[in-house]
Nucleic acid binder design. Structure first.
Length: 736
RNA sequence: GCGCCCUUAGCUCAGUUGGUAGAGCAGCUCAUUUACACUGAGAAGGUCGGGGGUUCAAGUCCCUCAGGGCGCACCA
């Protein structure tokens, strides 16, 4: 591009203007080089920071799942965290931001299984455990590499030398160590209980991994047999062959007389034995006021059965098929069995009523399979057991105390109540999964010579012959719950662990509060007796410009890396940050990002003007000879810096970004620069000297203040600033 | 059922100790070899969802109603 000649007689461009400023700012040709320079400088690693960086400030990157690629939400998260870290680094903290990835057990395995089935028509059993895990690891590796590139692209100043993976050796050791601790203290138990079974993924899942979808169901009212005195209602007639009791309210006058009576019945070709029990949980107002109790296939019924000693009779298997033996139902899918049972009821004249009711369907978050409650032998974490070594408090209480007594601050505040509400509903946590990708349960079994069963739980396998390890793997959140300290080398007493734990801030999406945030608190409170972090900062969901969730099926994904290539990472970051406070959802559009590309270019052009107006002058940090106008401008600007510094400390990044944007463009460029043209042409020598220093000072401080938000363009300009004692901008001081 | 959030200019949203309503984008009028068209200047645009209360003063605090979003639980 041909440099344009201004109307003045001055040669243009002045000799001191580096050629790069004669073209518009081009992020694509700049950013990768800048990132590499940061890496080479070593400043992402706190050990390499200059001596002024003393007080530690640490955060962990919520590890992305190795299931694919990053989306706008991850870019948003990285942008916020990078702002925190760069700000604190400039403020002189010894900053550590640890990156890593999450193996995301079920999510990753079901993704790879799906791909293999599509391409080769093979299922996991066809491949075997070893081969499947090998394939998943290969996929995870590839996915990891592209995620790392994406994190770099957004400009994250993470310390790559400390990168961690939930399934690597150190983190696995931490997992086994904690499992043993909990097991030895009786917090982990193995029990035969009704769990959430995902027939599609062929594994149990936790309560939090269930997604409820609204649908319609039919409520059938009927009697087991002509002789049975009580009518019951159900939406799942096929499970009734597993009934072992009927529960009524103990005070219900209609049924009181039957409590304690037992009946043998032939139902849909199966022999069932029913005992009538009185239970306070039964609502006499609902349906007939009597509940057919199916202990094996309902969480609530299981609990009733435990209170009254009713036997558990499973009638559905892991493939959601009937496991009974009678000719009418044996081997049928539950849905077919339902029709069969209903037809049989009608035929026998037992069906009294059939009505449509709204009904939620439970589906597995990752596979979409319809969740079937099944009784299974599984591993659980007891959240209610009092722990002597922790002041006789239960895990639940430890989790509550973290926020109410131990000072974890949640931003925005209202999520404190959400957290409390979640904990109050918490049940024992089922941690075993019947999948192959993940941390194998560190328990071994054998039967000794005398025929006695032995069980061994340990960090390393037991010595001796004949041991076999538990087949199951652990819930992925068990390992990510340890993230704040496993990443710092725990259980080893590392210097990192001593310096950087508890971490300062945990920044993450509010949608994983129960999954992850609560579990990190649980683990750290229990294992270390400290909080895992002092502050929790929640961001919201990034939506498309119409406010819809970004999803594959809508095809409304905006890829952050594409956007960064097109408009620059700085523009993507600014576009995500401005106007989005903590906890609130945001809308992103290409147009918004484009607007901030213009901003980067504006700073670029401001620099061109300032440099060409101050030829031969260097920034004088001790300059005091301000003209009256300039003194005023400097003092206004200082006031702004005081203001935004306070807001940075209050996590109001969206406000700061907007204010700096407004000042630089609407005040510095539109007003101050314009007025400078006159001063520099017609002012006194003293005024000119003052004004040149003013331009340099404001530009210099603006670059410093903007650096956390737009690190690339500011660092690129910084290289050419006429400042004698310059350090790389990344470790310069925050302006004041 | 329990709980959380939102409702401010056409659109997207700021507005945290209560003190004369803000920004960006879009639209309108104008400028144009300018540091920058990835531009500038200007004007226009709001009974801050409705109602009530506290107060000298309410977008902001309290109550209530309406609409929208979401989480958890229940779902015989």
């Amino acid at each position: 591009m041909e440099p344009k000649k201004p109307p003045s007689q001055q040669p243009y461009p002045p000799a001191n203007i580096p050629a790069k400023f004669l073209k518009p700012y081009d992020p694509a040709s700049t950013e990768d080089g800048i990132y590499k320079a940061w890496i080479d400088s070593g400043y992402f690693n706190p050990d390499n920071l200059p001596a002024r960086h003393k007080e530690p400030f640490s955060i962990v990157l919520p590890p992305p799942n190795v299931t694919g690629i990053l989306h706008m939400g991850s870019a948003f998260m990285i942008a916020i965290e990078d702002i925190m870290v760069r700000y604190k680094r400039m403020r002189g903290f010894k900053t550590l931001w640890i990156p890593g990835t999450d193996h995301a057990a079920i999510a990753t395995q079901s993704k790879v299984e799906g791909d293999i089935y599509k391409k080769e028509g093979k299922r996991r059993q066809d491949l075997g455990r070893e081969e499947l895990v090998r394939r998943i690891e290969a996929f995870a590796k590839e996915s990891h590499d592209s995620i790392v590139n994406q994190i770099r692209k957004v400009g994250a100043s993470v310390d790559w030398s400390r990168e961690a993976y939930t399934l690597d050796e150190k983190r696995s050791l931490a997992v086994r160590t904690v499992f043993k601790m909990m097991n030895d203290e009786g917090l982990i138990y193995r029990g035969y209980r009704v769990v959430n079974w995902d027939p599609k993924g062929q594994t149990t899942i936790s309560d939090d991994e269930i997604v409820y979808t609204e649908g319609k169901g039919k409520l059938y009212t009927f009697k087991y047999s002509k002789d049975f005195p009580i009518s019951i209602a159900t939406t799942r007639p096929e499970t009734k062959v597993g009934d072992t009791g009927v529960a009524v309210h103990p005070d219900d006058p209609r049924y009181q007389q039957y409590i304690g009576k037992e009946f043998d019945i032939e139902f849909a070709g199966e022999k069932i034995h029913i005992k009538v029990v009185g239970d306070n949980e039964v609502n006499p107002e609902f349906g007939t006021g009597a509940v057919g109790v199916t202990p094996a296939h309902s969480h609530v019924d299981y609990e009733i059965s435990q209170r009254h000693g009713l036997p558990i009779v499973p009638v559905i298997n892991e493939y959601a098929k009937m496991s009974v033996t009678g000719p009418m139902l044996a081997g049928k899918k539950t849905t077919d069995a339902r029709e069969t049972v209903v037809a049989w009821l009608k035929d026998q004249g037992l069906l009294e009523k059939e009505e449509e009711i709204p009904q939620n369907m439970s589906t597995a978050e990752r596979t979409g399979g319809i969740v079937e409650p099944l009784p299974k032998l599984q591993w659980f974490v007891n959240v209610n057991k009092k722990i002597p070594s922790r002041g006789n408090r239960s895990l639940k209480e430890l989790m509550l105390d973290a926020v109410t007594k131990d000072g974890i601050k949640i931003i925005p505040e209202n999520f404190e109540r959400v957290y409390m509400h979640w904990i109050s509903n918490l049940r024992d946590w089922c941690i075993s999964r019947q999948i192959w990708f993940g941390h194998r349960v560190p328990v071994w079994y054998r039967t000794d010579a005398s025929g006695k069963d032995e069980l061994y739980c340990g960090v390393t396998p037991p010595s001796g012959e004949g041991w076999t390890q538990d087949e199951d793997t652990l819930d992925t959140w068990f390992s990510s719950g340890l993230w704040t300290f496993s990443t710092l080398g725990w259980p080893e007493e590392t210097a990192d662990f001593k310096t950087f734990h508890p971490t300062a801030v945990l920044e993450t999406g509010y949608d994983i509060l129960p999954f992850w945030v609560a579990r990190m608190i649980l683990m750290s409170q229990y294992v270390l007796g400290t909080v895992p972090f002092k502050t929790v900062y929640f961001h919201g969901i990034v939506r498309d410009e119409k406010g819809r969730k970004i999803s594959k099926s809508l095809g409304n994904n905006i890829d952050p890396v594409d956007m960064a290539m097109k408009y620059g990472a700085d523009a993507v970051r600014m576009g995500l940050i401005v106007g989005t406070g903590p906890g609130s959802d945001s809308k992103i559009s290409e147009n918004k990002i484009k607007g901030y590309k213009n901003f980067a270019n504006k700073i670029w052009n401001i620099t061109r003007f300032v440099l060409s107006s101050t030829e031969g002058v260097s920034l004088d940090r001790g300059f005091t000879e301000w003209s009256a106008d300039d003194a005023k401008i400097m003092s206004n600007f200082s006031a702004l810096l005081v203001e935004v510094t306070k807001e940075m400390d209050e996590f109001k990044y969206h406000i700061v970004a907007e204010k700096l944007y407004g000042y630089v463009w609407r005040e510095f460029a539109d007003v101050i620069l314009e007025a400078s043209k006159k001063v520099l042409a017609e002012g006194s020598d003293a005024d000119k000297i003052s004004r040149k220093q003013l331009l340099l000072h404001i530009l210099e401080k603006s670059l410093r203040a903007l650096h956390p938000f737009a690190p690339f363009v500011t660092e690129e300009i910084w290289k050419d600033m006429p400042i004698a004692d310059k350090k790389p901008l990344i470790i310069e001081e925050w302006p004041r």
